[in-house]
Design a protein around this nucleic acid. Structure first.
Lengths: 282, 282
DNA sequence: ACATTAAATGTAGTAAAATTACAACTTTCA
DNA sequence: TGAAAGTTGTAATTTTACTACATTTAATGT
Protein backbone atom coordinates (compact mmCIF):
# COMPACT_ATOMS: atom_id res chain seq x y z
CA UNK A 1 0.00 0.00 0.00
CA UNK A 2 1.07 3.52 -0.67
CA UNK A 3 2.99 4.67 2.36
CA UNK A 4 1.94 8.29 2.10
CA UNK A 5 -1.64 7.21 2.29
CA UNK A 6 -0.73 5.06 5.22
CA UNK A 7 0.86 8.00 7.01
CA UNK A 8 -2.20 10.11 6.43
CA UNK A 9 -4.47 7.37 7.71
CA UNK A 10 -2.54 6.29 10.78
CA UNK A 11 -2.24 9.84 11.98
CA UNK A 12 -4.31 9.01 15.03
CA UNK A 13 -1.93 6.23 16.02
CA UNK A 14 1.00 8.62 16.17
CA UNK A 15 2.29 10.37 19.24
CA UNK A 16 2.72 14.11 19.36
CA UNK A 17 6.28 14.16 18.06
CA UNK A 18 5.58 11.48 15.54
CA UNK A 19 2.83 13.63 14.15
CA UNK A 20 5.35 16.39 13.64
CA UNK A 21 7.41 14.03 11.55
CA UNK A 22 4.35 12.98 9.58
CA UNK A 23 3.51 16.61 8.82
CA UNK A 24 6.97 17.36 7.53
CA UNK A 25 7.03 14.29 5.33
CA UNK A 26 3.58 14.84 3.88
CA UNK A 27 4.41 18.47 3.24
CA UNK A 28 7.47 17.75 1.14
CA UNK A 29 8.00 14.07 0.55
CA UNK A 30 10.45 14.74 -2.25
CA UNK A 31 12.77 16.43 0.19
CA UNK A 32 12.35 13.68 2.72
CA UNK A 33 13.71 10.93 0.54
CA UNK A 34 16.92 12.87 0.04
CA UNK A 35 17.47 13.69 3.67
CA UNK A 36 19.35 11.76 6.31
CA UNK A 37 17.63 10.85 9.53
CA UNK A 38 19.47 13.69 11.23
CA UNK A 39 18.25 16.40 8.87
CA UNK A 40 14.72 15.09 8.90
CA UNK A 41 14.82 15.07 12.69
CA UNK A 42 15.97 18.66 12.70
CA UNK A 43 13.30 19.67 10.17
CA UNK A 44 10.61 18.08 12.31
CA UNK A 45 12.15 19.45 15.48
CA UNK A 46 12.39 16.07 17.15
CA UNK A 47 15.21 13.70 17.99
CA UNK A 48 16.63 11.11 15.66
CA UNK A 49 15.29 8.09 17.54
CA UNK A 50 11.81 9.55 17.27
CA UNK A 51 12.09 9.52 13.52
CA UNK A 52 13.28 5.97 13.74
CA UNK A 53 10.33 4.98 15.90
CA UNK A 54 8.05 6.72 13.45
CA UNK A 55 9.39 4.53 10.67
CA UNK A 56 8.89 1.35 12.64
CA UNK A 57 5.35 2.25 13.48
CA UNK A 58 4.72 2.14 9.76
CA UNK A 59 5.99 -1.41 9.62
CA UNK A 60 9.31 -0.64 8.04
CA UNK A 61 12.61 -1.98 9.25
CA UNK A 62 14.03 1.44 9.95
CA UNK A 63 14.76 4.74 8.36
CA UNK A 64 16.52 3.55 5.19
CA UNK A 65 13.81 1.02 4.57
CA UNK A 66 11.19 3.68 5.11
CA UNK A 67 12.90 5.91 2.56
CA UNK A 68 12.75 3.09 0.08
CA UNK A 69 9.02 2.72 0.56
CA UNK A 70 8.57 6.44 0.32
CA UNK A 71 10.59 6.59 -2.86
CA UNK A 72 8.43 3.91 -4.39
CA UNK A 73 5.26 5.69 -3.44
CA UNK A 74 6.50 8.83 -5.08
CA UNK A 75 7.77 7.06 -8.14
CA UNK A 76 4.71 5.91 -9.96
CA UNK A 77 2.79 9.10 -10.48
CA UNK A 78 0.16 7.70 -8.19
CA UNK A 79 1.09 9.69 -5.16
CA UNK A 80 -1.50 10.29 -2.56
CA UNK A 81 -4.82 8.63 -2.78
CA UNK A 82 -7.57 10.53 -1.07
CA UNK A 83 -6.04 13.90 -1.28
CA UNK A 84 -9.21 15.80 -0.90
CA UNK A 85 -9.43 19.41 -1.78
CA UNK A 86 -10.19 21.62 1.14
CA UNK A 87 -11.31 25.11 1.78
CA UNK A 88 -7.98 26.88 2.08
CA UNK A 89 -6.29 25.36 -0.96
CA UNK A 90 -4.76 27.67 -3.52
CA UNK A 91 -4.67 26.98 -7.26
CA UNK A 92 -1.43 25.06 -7.00
CA UNK A 93 -2.80 22.77 -4.35
CA UNK A 94 -6.17 22.01 -5.80
CA UNK A 95 -4.78 21.52 -9.28
CA UNK A 96 -2.29 18.99 -8.07
CA UNK A 97 -4.81 17.27 -5.86
CA UNK A 98 -7.33 16.87 -8.63
CA UNK A 99 -4.80 15.49 -11.05
CA UNK A 100 -3.34 13.18 -8.47
CA UNK A 101 -6.60 11.83 -7.19
CA UNK A 102 -7.74 11.28 -10.76
CA UNK A 103 -4.64 9.22 -11.41
CA UNK A 104 -5.14 7.31 -8.21
CA UNK A 105 -8.72 6.54 -9.15
CA UNK A 106 -7.62 5.27 -12.52
CA UNK A 107 -5.22 2.91 -10.82
CA UNK A 108 -7.98 1.57 -8.61
CA UNK A 109 -10.31 1.30 -11.57
CA UNK A 110 -7.71 -0.54 -13.58
CA UNK A 111 -7.40 -3.19 -10.93
CA UNK A 112 -11.15 -3.63 -10.69
CA UNK A 113 -11.78 -4.26 -14.36
CA UNK A 114 -12.80 -7.79 -15.24
CA UNK A 115 -10.68 -8.70 -18.24
CA UNK A 116 -12.92 -11.54 -19.30
CA UNK A 117 -15.89 -9.24 -19.56
CA UNK A 118 -13.81 -6.72 -21.50
CA UNK A 119 -12.88 -9.42 -23.93
CA UNK A 120 -16.46 -10.61 -24.24
CA UNK A 121 -17.79 -7.10 -24.80
CA UNK A 122 -15.19 -6.42 -27.47
CA UNK A 123 -16.38 -9.59 -29.11
CA UNK A 124 -19.95 -8.39 -29.04
CA UNK A 125 -19.08 -4.97 -30.36
CA UNK A 126 -17.12 -6.30 -33.32
CA UNK A 127 -20.08 -8.48 -34.29
CA UNK A 128 -22.83 -5.99 -33.58
CA UNK A 129 -25.23 -4.91 -36.30
CA UNK A 130 -25.77 -1.63 -34.54
CA UNK A 131 -24.18 -0.12 -31.44
CA UNK A 132 -26.00 2.37 -29.22
CA UNK A 133 -24.42 4.46 -26.49
CA UNK A 134 -26.64 6.04 -23.87
CA UNK A 135 -26.05 7.89 -20.65
CA UNK A 136 -27.74 10.66 -18.72
CA UNK A 137 -26.37 13.65 -16.89
CA UNK A 138 -22.66 13.40 -16.41
CA UNK A 139 -22.56 10.10 -18.22
CA UNK A 140 -24.13 11.67 -21.31
CA UNK A 141 -20.80 13.14 -22.29
CA UNK A 142 -19.20 9.73 -21.91
CA UNK A 143 -21.73 8.24 -24.30
CA UNK A 144 -21.12 11.18 -26.58
CA UNK A 145 -17.43 10.42 -26.54
CA UNK A 146 -18.01 6.76 -27.24
CA UNK A 147 -20.06 7.75 -30.26
CA UNK A 148 -17.21 9.84 -31.52
CA UNK A 149 -14.75 6.98 -31.18
CA UNK A 150 -16.82 4.23 -32.69
CA UNK A 151 -18.12 6.43 -35.44
CA UNK A 152 -14.64 6.36 -36.90
CA UNK A 153 -14.82 2.61 -37.19
CA UNK A 154 -17.47 2.87 -39.85
CA UNK A 155 -19.98 0.80 -37.93
CA UNK A 156 -23.62 1.77 -37.40
CA UNK A 157 -23.51 3.65 -34.13
CA UNK A 158 -26.20 5.61 -32.36
CA UNK A 159 -26.28 8.16 -29.59
CA UNK A 160 -29.11 10.32 -28.27
CA UNK A 161 -29.22 12.83 -25.54
CA UNK A 162 -32.96 12.90 -25.44
CA UNK A 163 -34.46 10.28 -23.19
CA UNK A 164 -37.43 9.70 -25.43
CA UNK A 165 -35.27 9.20 -28.44
CA UNK A 166 -33.24 6.75 -26.43
CA UNK A 167 -36.38 4.80 -25.58
CA UNK A 168 -37.65 4.77 -29.12
CA UNK A 169 -34.30 3.69 -30.38
CA UNK A 170 -34.28 0.78 -27.94
CA UNK A 171 -37.82 -0.23 -28.89
CA UNK A 172 -36.68 -0.61 -32.47
CA UNK A 173 -33.66 -2.64 -31.56
CA UNK A 174 -33.38 -6.30 -32.38
CA UNK A 175 -31.20 -9.34 -32.12
CA UNK A 176 -27.60 -8.49 -32.95
CA UNK A 177 -27.84 -4.97 -31.64
CA UNK A 178 -25.68 -3.93 -28.70
CA UNK A 179 -26.77 -1.21 -26.31
CA UNK A 180 -24.08 0.22 -24.04
CA UNK A 181 -25.33 2.12 -21.02
CA UNK A 182 -23.22 4.40 -18.87
CA UNK A 183 -24.10 5.26 -15.30
CA UNK A 184 -21.84 5.65 -12.32
CA UNK A 185 -24.43 4.85 -9.70
CA UNK A 186 -26.57 2.54 -11.81
CA UNK A 187 -29.63 3.89 -10.04
CA UNK A 188 -31.05 6.25 -12.60
CA UNK A 189 -34.60 5.07 -13.16
CA UNK A 190 -34.96 6.03 -16.80
CA UNK A 191 -31.77 4.29 -17.71
CA UNK A 192 -32.83 1.10 -15.98
CA UNK A 193 -36.06 1.21 -17.96
CA UNK A 194 -34.10 1.60 -21.16
CA UNK A 195 -32.10 -1.46 -20.29
CA UNK A 196 -35.33 -3.40 -19.83
CA UNK A 197 -36.80 -2.19 -23.10
CA UNK A 198 -33.65 -3.05 -25.00
CA UNK A 199 -33.55 -6.52 -23.54
CA UNK A 200 -37.18 -7.19 -24.32
CA UNK A 201 -36.32 -6.47 -27.91
CA UNK A 202 -33.51 -9.00 -27.93
CA UNK A 203 -30.68 -6.50 -27.90
CA UNK A 204 -27.60 -7.30 -25.87
CA UNK A 205 -27.26 -4.78 -23.07
CA UNK A 206 -23.85 -3.86 -21.71
CA UNK A 207 -23.75 -1.78 -18.54
CA UNK A 208 -20.75 0.28 -17.59
CA UNK A 209 -21.83 0.92 -14.05
CA UNK A 210 -21.28 -0.14 -10.49
CA UNK A 211 -21.66 -3.80 -9.60
CA UNK A 212 -24.87 -4.94 -7.95
CA UNK A 213 -26.82 -1.83 -8.89
CA UNK A 214 -30.37 -1.98 -10.29
CA UNK A 215 -28.99 -1.18 -13.72
CA UNK A 216 -26.38 -3.90 -13.42
CA UNK A 217 -29.12 -6.41 -12.73
CA UNK A 218 -30.86 -5.60 -15.99
CA UNK A 219 -27.78 -5.95 -18.16
CA UNK A 220 -26.55 -8.92 -20.16
CA UNK A 221 -22.99 -7.95 -19.35
CA UNK A 222 -21.69 -5.63 -16.69
CA UNK A 223 -18.38 -3.86 -16.83
CA UNK A 224 -18.12 -2.60 -13.30
CA UNK A 225 -15.63 0.03 -12.35
CA UNK A 226 -14.72 0.49 -8.78
CA UNK A 227 -13.96 4.14 -8.33
CA UNK A 228 -13.40 5.92 -5.03
CA UNK A 229 -16.42 8.08 -4.38
CA UNK A 230 -16.07 11.73 -5.23
CA UNK A 231 -17.76 12.83 -2.07
CA UNK A 232 -16.10 16.19 -1.86
CA UNK A 233 -17.63 18.22 -4.55
CA UNK A 234 -20.98 16.63 -5.14
CA UNK A 235 -19.94 16.22 -8.71
CA UNK A 236 -18.97 13.13 -10.63
CA UNK A 237 -15.35 13.49 -11.52
CA UNK A 238 -13.12 10.46 -11.34
CA UNK A 239 -15.92 8.03 -12.22
CA UNK A 240 -16.40 9.77 -15.54
CA UNK A 241 -12.72 9.62 -16.39
CA UNK A 242 -12.58 5.94 -15.54
CA UNK A 243 -15.54 5.30 -17.84
CA UNK A 244 -13.87 7.18 -20.64
CA UNK A 245 -10.69 5.23 -20.22
CA UNK A 246 -12.71 2.07 -20.41
CA UNK A 247 -14.21 3.32 -23.65
CA UNK A 248 -10.65 3.73 -24.91
CA UNK A 249 -9.94 0.18 -23.89
CA UNK A 250 -12.98 -1.12 -25.73
CA UNK A 251 -12.15 0.93 -28.79
CA UNK A 252 -8.60 -0.35 -28.73
CA UNK A 253 -9.75 -3.93 -28.36
CA UNK A 254 -12.08 -3.32 -31.27
CA UNK A 255 -9.35 -2.13 -33.60
CA UNK A 256 -6.99 -4.89 -32.55
CA UNK A 257 -9.66 -7.44 -33.31
CA UNK A 258 -10.22 -5.95 -36.71
CA UNK A 259 -6.53 -6.19 -37.53
CA UNK A 260 -3.94 -4.13 -39.27
CA UNK A 261 -5.81 -3.32 -42.45
CA UNK A 262 -8.59 -1.82 -40.49
CA UNK A 263 -6.20 0.46 -38.73
CA UNK A 264 -4.96 1.83 -41.99
CA UNK A 265 -8.55 2.68 -42.68
CA UNK A 266 -8.60 4.66 -39.44
CA UNK A 267 -5.62 6.60 -40.62
CA UNK A 268 -7.56 7.55 -43.75
CA UNK A 269 -10.42 8.81 -41.62
CA UNK A 270 -7.97 10.99 -39.78
CA UNK A 271 -6.43 12.25 -42.99
CA UNK A 272 -9.83 13.29 -44.22
CA UNK A 273 -10.00 15.75 -41.40
CA UNK A 274 -6.89 17.46 -42.68
CA UNK A 275 -8.76 19.83 -44.96
CA UNK A 276 -10.63 21.29 -42.06
CA UNK A 277 -7.40 22.07 -40.28
CA UNK A 278 -4.59 24.53 -40.52
CA UNK A 279 -1.38 22.91 -41.61
CA UNK A 280 1.26 22.32 -39.05
CA UNK A 281 4.58 23.70 -40.14
CA UNK A 282 7.64 22.55 -38.29
CA UNK B 1 14.65 7.63 -16.95
CA UNK B 2 14.27 4.15 -15.63
CA UNK B 3 17.59 3.26 -14.07
CA UNK B 4 17.37 -0.41 -14.92
CA UNK B 5 17.13 0.48 -18.57
CA UNK B 6 20.02 2.83 -18.09
CA UNK B 7 22.15 0.08 -16.61
CA UNK B 8 21.33 -2.20 -19.49
CA UNK B 9 22.15 0.52 -22.00
CA UNK B 10 25.39 1.81 -20.52
CA UNK B 11 26.84 -1.65 -20.23
CA UNK B 12 29.55 -0.77 -22.70
CA UNK B 13 30.68 2.15 -20.57
CA UNK B 14 31.31 -0.09 -17.58
CA UNK B 15 34.61 -1.64 -16.61
CA UNK B 16 34.97 -5.36 -16.07
CA UNK B 17 34.15 -5.29 -12.36
CA UNK B 18 31.41 -2.77 -12.85
CA UNK B 19 29.80 -5.12 -15.33
CA UNK B 20 29.76 -7.79 -12.65
CA UNK B 21 27.84 -5.42 -10.43
CA UNK B 22 25.44 -4.62 -13.26
CA UNK B 23 24.79 -8.30 -13.84
CA UNK B 24 23.96 -8.95 -10.24
CA UNK B 25 21.64 -5.98 -10.01
CA UNK B 26 19.83 -6.76 -13.23
CA UNK B 27 19.47 -10.38 -12.18
CA UNK B 28 17.72 -9.63 -8.92
CA UNK B 29 17.01 -5.96 -8.44
CA UNK B 30 14.57 -6.64 -5.64
CA UNK B 31 17.36 -8.10 -3.55
CA UNK B 32 19.65 -5.24 -4.42
CA UNK B 33 17.49 -2.53 -2.92
CA UNK B 34 17.48 -4.32 0.39
CA UNK B 35 21.20 -4.94 0.54
CA UNK B 36 23.96 -2.80 1.95
CA UNK B 37 26.88 -1.81 -0.20
CA UNK B 38 28.94 -4.51 1.53
CA UNK B 39 26.61 -7.38 0.74
CA UNK B 40 26.13 -6.23 -2.82
CA UNK B 41 29.90 -6.05 -3.21
CA UNK B 42 30.25 -9.57 -1.92
CA UNK B 43 27.46 -10.83 -4.20
CA UNK B 44 29.16 -9.28 -7.20
CA UNK B 45 32.56 -10.44 -5.99
CA UNK B 46 34.06 -6.98 -6.12
CA UNK B 47 35.12 -4.43 -3.54
CA UNK B 48 32.87 -1.86 -1.96
CA UNK B 49 34.43 1.16 -3.65
CA UNK B 50 33.80 -0.49 -7.00
CA UNK B 51 30.11 -0.61 -6.24
CA UNK B 52 30.30 3.00 -5.23
CA UNK B 53 32.03 3.95 -8.46
CA UNK B 54 29.42 1.98 -10.35
CA UNK B 55 26.72 4.11 -8.75
CA UNK B 56 28.45 7.34 -9.65
CA UNK B 57 28.89 6.32 -13.22
CA UNK B 58 25.10 6.24 -13.39
CA UNK B 59 24.95 9.84 -12.27
CA UNK B 60 23.80 9.15 -8.75
CA UNK B 61 25.33 10.71 -5.69
CA UNK B 62 26.37 7.40 -4.21
CA UNK B 63 25.04 4.06 -3.15
CA UNK B 64 22.05 5.20 -1.08
CA UNK B 65 20.98 7.57 -3.82
CA UNK B 66 21.33 4.78 -6.34
CA UNK B 67 19.13 2.54 -4.25
CA UNK B 68 16.49 5.24 -4.21
CA UNK B 69 16.50 5.43 -7.98
CA UNK B 70 16.41 1.69 -8.24
CA UNK B 71 13.50 1.47 -5.83
CA UNK B 72 11.57 3.97 -7.89
CA UNK B 73 12.20 2.04 -11.07
CA UNK B 74 10.92 -1.10 -9.46
CA UNK B 75 7.83 0.51 -8.02
CA UNK B 76 4.62 -0.61 -9.64
CA UNK B 77 6.31 -3.19 -11.84
CA UNK B 78 7.85 -1.04 -14.54
CA UNK B 79 5.63 1.97 -14.52
CA UNK B 80 4.05 3.52 -17.50
CA UNK B 81 6.60 4.78 -19.89
CA UNK B 82 6.05 4.32 -23.57
CA UNK B 83 3.82 1.37 -23.12
CA UNK B 84 2.24 1.35 -26.49
CA UNK B 85 -0.31 -1.18 -27.49
CA UNK B 86 0.84 -3.51 -30.19
CA UNK B 87 -0.63 -6.05 -32.50
CA UNK B 88 -0.25 -9.20 -30.43
CA UNK B 89 -1.58 -7.83 -27.15
CA UNK B 90 -4.37 -9.70 -25.41
CA UNK B 91 -7.13 -8.03 -23.38
CA UNK B 92 -5.06 -8.06 -20.22
CA UNK B 93 -2.16 -6.32 -21.87
CA UNK B 94 -4.00 -3.66 -23.79
CA UNK B 95 -6.26 -2.85 -20.89
CA UNK B 96 -3.31 -2.30 -18.61
CA UNK B 97 -1.38 -0.37 -21.21
CA UNK B 98 -4.25 2.00 -21.91
CA UNK B 99 -4.86 2.70 -18.25
CA UNK B 100 -1.20 3.15 -17.56
CA UNK B 101 -0.45 5.39 -20.47
CA UNK B 102 -3.49 7.47 -19.58
CA UNK B 103 -2.13 7.92 -16.08
CA UNK B 104 1.28 8.77 -17.43
CA UNK B 105 -0.21 11.39 -19.72
CA UNK B 106 -2.07 12.93 -16.82
CA UNK B 107 1.17 13.22 -14.93
CA UNK B 108 2.82 14.97 -17.84
CA UNK B 109 -0.21 17.20 -18.28
CA UNK B 110 -0.22 18.10 -14.61
CA UNK B 111 3.31 19.34 -14.80
CA UNK B 112 2.62 21.40 -17.88
CA UNK B 113 -0.32 23.34 -16.50
CA UNK B 114 0.33 27.00 -15.85
CA UNK B 115 -1.11 27.65 -12.42
CA UNK B 116 -1.30 31.39 -12.91
CA UNK B 117 -3.48 30.99 -15.95
CA UNK B 118 -5.67 28.51 -14.09
CA UNK B 119 -6.14 31.03 -11.37
CA UNK B 120 -6.88 33.82 -13.82
CA UNK B 121 -9.38 31.70 -15.73
CA UNK B 122 -11.18 30.72 -12.55
CA UNK B 123 -11.37 34.43 -11.81
CA UNK B 124 -12.94 35.09 -15.16
CA UNK B 125 -15.40 32.25 -14.86
CA UNK B 126 -16.65 33.34 -11.46
CA UNK B 127 -17.28 36.81 -12.80
CA UNK B 128 -18.68 35.84 -16.16
CA UNK B 129 -22.15 36.93 -17.21
CA UNK B 130 -22.40 33.93 -19.48
CA UNK B 131 -20.10 31.00 -20.07
CA UNK B 132 -19.95 29.11 -23.36
CA UNK B 133 -18.22 25.81 -23.96
CA UNK B 134 -17.46 24.75 -27.51
CA UNK B 135 -15.48 21.98 -29.10
CA UNK B 136 -15.68 19.89 -32.23
CA UNK B 137 -15.18 16.20 -32.86
CA UNK B 138 -13.56 14.52 -29.91
CA UNK B 139 -13.50 17.76 -27.99
CA UNK B 140 -17.25 18.13 -28.33
CA UNK B 141 -17.78 15.65 -25.55
CA UNK B 142 -15.38 17.59 -23.37
CA UNK B 143 -17.40 20.74 -23.91
CA UNK B 144 -20.51 18.72 -23.21
CA UNK B 145 -19.04 17.59 -19.94
CA UNK B 146 -18.06 21.11 -18.99
CA UNK B 147 -21.64 22.17 -19.57
CA UNK B 148 -22.84 19.48 -17.25
CA UNK B 149 -20.48 20.59 -14.51
CA UNK B 150 -21.03 24.29 -14.68
CA UNK B 151 -24.74 23.94 -15.16
CA UNK B 152 -24.90 22.77 -11.56
CA UNK B 153 -23.43 26.05 -10.43
CA UNK B 154 -26.53 27.89 -11.47
CA UNK B 155 -24.69 30.21 -13.82
CA UNK B 156 -25.77 30.98 -17.38
CA UNK B 157 -23.93 28.40 -19.40
CA UNK B 158 -24.17 27.51 -23.05
CA UNK B 159 -23.09 24.58 -25.19
CA UNK B 160 -23.85 23.74 -28.81
CA UNK B 161 -22.78 20.88 -30.94
CA UNK B 162 -23.85 22.55 -34.14
CA UNK B 163 -21.16 24.75 -35.60
CA UNK B 164 -23.63 27.32 -36.87
CA UNK B 165 -25.25 27.61 -33.50
CA UNK B 166 -21.81 28.09 -32.00
CA UNK B 167 -21.12 30.92 -34.43
CA UNK B 168 -24.42 32.61 -33.82
CA UNK B 169 -23.97 32.31 -30.13
CA UNK B 170 -20.58 33.96 -30.36
CA UNK B 171 -21.92 36.76 -32.55
CA UNK B 172 -24.37 37.60 -29.84
CA UNK B 173 -21.78 37.59 -27.12
CA UNK B 174 -20.66 40.73 -25.40
CA UNK B 175 -18.35 42.14 -22.78
CA UNK B 176 -18.39 39.98 -19.66
CA UNK B 177 -19.03 36.77 -21.54
CA UNK B 178 -16.46 34.02 -21.43
CA UNK B 179 -16.07 31.55 -24.27
CA UNK B 180 -14.09 28.41 -23.55
CA UNK B 181 -12.84 26.51 -26.56
CA UNK B 182 -11.50 22.97 -26.50
CA UNK B 183 -9.20 21.58 -29.16
CA UNK B 184 -6.25 19.29 -28.80
CA UNK B 185 -4.46 20.38 -31.93
CA UNK B 186 -5.74 23.94 -32.02
CA UNK B 187 -5.81 23.74 -35.80
CA UNK B 188 -9.48 23.22 -36.50
CA UNK B 189 -10.42 26.07 -38.82
CA UNK B 190 -14.00 26.55 -37.73
CA UNK B 191 -13.00 26.76 -34.12
CA UNK B 192 -10.36 29.38 -34.83
CA UNK B 193 -13.01 31.40 -36.61
CA UNK B 194 -15.28 31.12 -33.63
CA UNK B 195 -12.51 32.46 -31.44
CA UNK B 196 -12.18 35.46 -33.74
CA UNK B 197 -15.88 36.13 -33.81
CA UNK B 198 -16.13 35.94 -30.06
CA UNK B 199 -13.25 38.32 -29.58
CA UNK B 200 -14.64 40.83 -32.04
CA UNK B 201 -17.70 40.89 -29.88
CA UNK B 202 -15.70 41.67 -26.76
CA UNK B 203 -16.04 38.26 -25.19
CA UNK B 204 -13.08 36.84 -23.33
CA UNK B 205 -11.84 33.75 -25.11
CA UNK B 206 -10.15 30.96 -23.20
CA UNK B 207 -8.48 28.23 -25.22
CA UNK B 208 -7.79 24.81 -23.81
CA UNK B 209 -5.46 23.72 -26.54
CA UNK B 210 -1.83 23.25 -27.42
CA UNK B 211 0.51 26.18 -27.05
CA UNK B 212 1.48 28.14 -30.14
CA UNK B 213 -1.33 26.78 -32.27
CA UNK B 214 -3.47 28.99 -34.52
CA UNK B 215 -6.29 28.73 -32.01
CA UNK B 216 -3.99 29.67 -29.15
CA UNK B 217 -3.02 32.83 -31.00
CA UNK B 218 -6.62 33.97 -31.15
CA UNK B 219 -7.37 33.48 -27.49
CA UNK B 220 -7.26 35.94 -24.65
CA UNK B 221 -6.00 33.20 -22.36
CA UNK B 222 -4.51 29.87 -23.22
CA UNK B 223 -4.48 26.88 -20.95
CA UNK B 224 -2.08 24.66 -22.76
CA UNK B 225 -1.82 21.00 -21.94
CA UNK B 226 1.20 19.13 -23.00
CA UNK B 227 0.07 15.59 -23.70
CA UNK B 228 2.14 12.87 -25.30
CA UNK B 229 0.78 12.29 -28.78
CA UNK B 230 -1.55 9.35 -29.14
CA UNK B 231 0.10 8.23 -32.33
CA UNK B 232 -0.85 4.61 -32.01
CA UNK B 233 -4.50 4.52 -32.67
CA UNK B 234 -5.22 7.58 -34.73
CA UNK B 235 -7.73 8.53 -32.10
CA UNK B 236 -7.58 11.23 -29.48
CA UNK B 237 -7.43 9.48 -26.16
CA UNK B 238 -5.17 10.90 -23.49
CA UNK B 239 -5.57 14.48 -24.67
CA UNK B 240 -9.30 14.26 -24.03
CA UNK B 241 -8.84 12.93 -20.53
CA UNK B 242 -6.36 15.65 -19.71
CA UNK B 243 -8.83 18.26 -20.89
CA UNK B 244 -11.55 16.77 -18.76
CA UNK B 245 -9.35 16.76 -15.73
CA UNK B 246 -8.60 20.38 -16.36
CA UNK B 247 -12.33 21.04 -16.46
CA UNK B 248 -12.52 19.41 -13.06
CA UNK B 249 -9.79 21.70 -11.86
CA UNK B 250 -11.60 24.76 -13.12
CA UNK B 251 -14.88 23.62 -11.63
CA UNK B 252 -13.19 22.98 -8.33
CA UNK B 253 -11.52 26.36 -8.37
CA UNK B 254 -14.90 27.85 -9.12
CA UNK B 255 -16.61 26.28 -6.14
CA UNK B 256 -13.74 27.13 -3.83
CA UNK B 257 -13.94 30.74 -4.91
CA UNK B 258 -17.64 30.80 -4.26
CA UNK B 259 -17.15 29.52 -0.74
CA UNK B 260 -18.79 27.13 1.61
CA UNK B 261 -22.35 28.31 1.30
CA UNK B 262 -22.25 27.79 -2.39
CA UNK B 263 -21.20 24.21 -1.89
CA UNK B 264 -24.21 23.51 0.25
CA UNK B 265 -26.22 24.70 -2.68
CA UNK B 266 -24.50 22.09 -4.83
CA UNK B 267 -25.54 19.45 -2.39
CA UNK B 268 -29.14 20.54 -2.83
CA UNK B 269 -28.82 20.18 -6.57
CA UNK B 270 -27.61 16.68 -6.07
CA UNK B 271 -30.40 15.88 -3.66
CA UNK B 272 -32.91 17.00 -6.26
CA UNK B 273 -31.75 14.17 -8.46
CA UNK B 274 -32.73 11.69 -5.82
CA UNK B 275 -36.29 11.29 -7.03
CA UNK B 276 -35.10 10.09 -10.38
CA UNK B 277 -33.06 7.38 -8.75
CA UNK B 278 -33.60 4.07 -7.06
CA UNK B 279 -32.81 4.23 -3.38
CA UNK B 280 -29.65 2.70 -2.21
CA UNK B 281 -30.22 0.30 0.63
CA UNK B 282 -27.24 -0.73 2.69
C1' DA C 1 59.81 -8.04 -25.10
C1' DC C 2 60.22 -4.55 -21.82
C1' DA C 3 59.51 -0.14 -19.81
C1' DT C 4 56.29 3.50 -18.91
C1' DT C 5 52.06 5.27 -18.23
C1' DA C 6 47.28 5.09 -17.58
C1' DA C 7 43.35 2.76 -15.91
C1' DA C 8 41.14 -0.29 -12.78
C1' DT C 9 40.60 -2.45 -8.46
C1' DG C 10 41.23 -3.33 -3.74
C1' DT C 11 42.78 -2.28 1.33
C1' DA C 12 42.51 0.19 5.20
C1' DG C 13 41.24 4.07 7.56
C1' DT C 14 37.70 7.80 8.32
C1' DA C 15 33.50 10.01 8.38
C1' DA C 16 28.70 9.75 8.48
C1' DA C 17 24.50 7.65 9.38
C1' DA C 18 21.40 4.71 11.84
C1' DT C 19 20.31 2.12 15.80
C1' DT C 20 20.31 0.77 20.70
C1' DA C 21 20.21 1.31 25.59
C1' DC C 22 18.96 3.96 29.00
C1' DA C 23 17.63 8.09 31.53
C1' DA C 24 14.47 12.02 32.03
C1' DC C 25 10.32 13.73 31.34
C1' DT C 26 4.89 13.64 30.56
C1' DT C 27 0.64 11.97 30.93
C1' DT C 28 -2.98 9.09 32.99
C1' DC C 29 -5.71 7.22 36.34
C1' DA C 30 -6.41 5.24 40.81
C1' DT D 1 -0.63 12.75 44.76
C1' DG D 2 1.99 9.09 43.25
C1' DA D 3 2.74 4.88 40.70
C1' DA D 4 2.64 3.05 36.06
C1' DA D 5 2.60 3.50 31.32
C1' DG D 6 3.90 5.95 27.67
C1' DT D 7 6.83 9.43 25.32
C1' DT D 8 10.99 11.75 24.22
C1' DG D 9 15.78 12.84 24.28
C1' DT D 10 21.01 11.97 25.22
C1' DA D 11 24.89 9.46 24.52
C1' DA D 12 27.19 5.33 23.20
C1' DT D 13 27.48 1.64 19.78
C1' DT D 14 27.16 -0.40 15.55
C1' DT D 15 26.55 -0.35 10.92
C1' DT D 16 27.17 1.71 6.56
C1' DA D 17 29.22 4.44 3.08
C1' DC D 18 33.04 7.01 1.50
C1' DT D 19 37.99 8.68 0.80
C1' DA D 20 42.81 8.33 0.17
C1' DC D 21 46.14 5.71 -1.16
C1' DA D 22 48.50 1.38 -2.54
C1' DT D 23 48.50 -2.39 -5.63
C1' DT D 24 47.45 -4.64 -9.60
C1' DT D 25 46.21 -4.95 -14.41
C1' DA D 26 46.03 -3.41 -19.03
C1' DA D 27 47.74 -0.41 -22.86
C1' DT D 28 51.12 1.90 -25.55
C1' DG D 29 55.48 3.11 -27.36
C1' DT D 30 60.44 2.01 -27.82
Amino acid sequence: MNILEKIAQSKSAFSKSEKKVAEVILANPQTAIHSSIATLAKMSDVSEPTVNRFCRRLDTKGYPDFKLHLAQSLANGTPYVNRHVDEGDGPQEYTNKIFESTMASLEVARQSVDINVVNRVVDLLTQAQKISFFGLGASASVAHDALNKFFRFNVPVVYFEDILMQRMSCMNSSDGDVVVLFSHTGRTKSLVEIAQIARHNDATVVGITSAGSPLANECSYVLSLEVPEDTDMYMPMASRIAQLTLVDVLATGFTLRRGNKFRENLKRVKDTLRNSRYEKRD
